[in-house]
Amino acid sequence: MSDDKIIDLLKNDPKKGMEQIINEYTGLLYSVCRKYLSPGTFCDADIEDCVSDTFCEAYEGINSFDRTRCSIKSWLCVIAKRRATDTLRAYYKRINTSPIDDTVILQSDAFDTEEDLIERSERQRLVCAIKQLDKTDRQIIVRKFFLCQPSKQIAAEMALTVRNVDTRTSRAIKKLQKIMGE
């Protein structure tokens, strides 16, 4: 279903519209939230809360969604990431300590420093390089390094074997390094 149709549904038939985006994007948002809310600290219910908050925020903010900027999918991912980092931040505040890897939380803050510009430039180069990979390799790299899915899950989702995933990952990394001139 197109984004326009979904937006239309959300505005005119909220139940159907929400059912549509929940059916379509729960898996993806679950992966995004799980990436930040590690199983050792957070349980499935925490992740489900985070995903459901994301959907609620999307529903409430649908009027501010700019269709020309990005798709619903990307928009939901950005909300999910913010929700997850908020949960993470609240957790560390509650236990009164700092996260092991401060970057996890700092990354959600938009610092416009020189360091940030360098990082942005590096990211743009990487995204351009990923864009040049073939469709399958691109998906594997995104699932592995953006969604942090294990090879087994990637294999199941993409109907490949685990070793195919690993081999393709290794080759794609080499290709990315070559494209980026490293």
Binding site: C70, K73, W75, C77, Q107, L126, I130, K135, V142, F146
Partner: peptide
């Protein structure tokens, strides 16, 4: 790669997430 991709903008996600569909458990859904 993990670190760099972690902070993607909406437009960058648009490129990266093309064709990516993740299934979810029916009970969680």
């Amino acid at each position: 790669f993990y670190k760099i991709l972690d902070n993607c903008s909406e437009q960058e996600l648009e490129i990266l997430l093309q064709g990516v569909k993740v299934s979810s458990g029916s009970s969680a859904e």
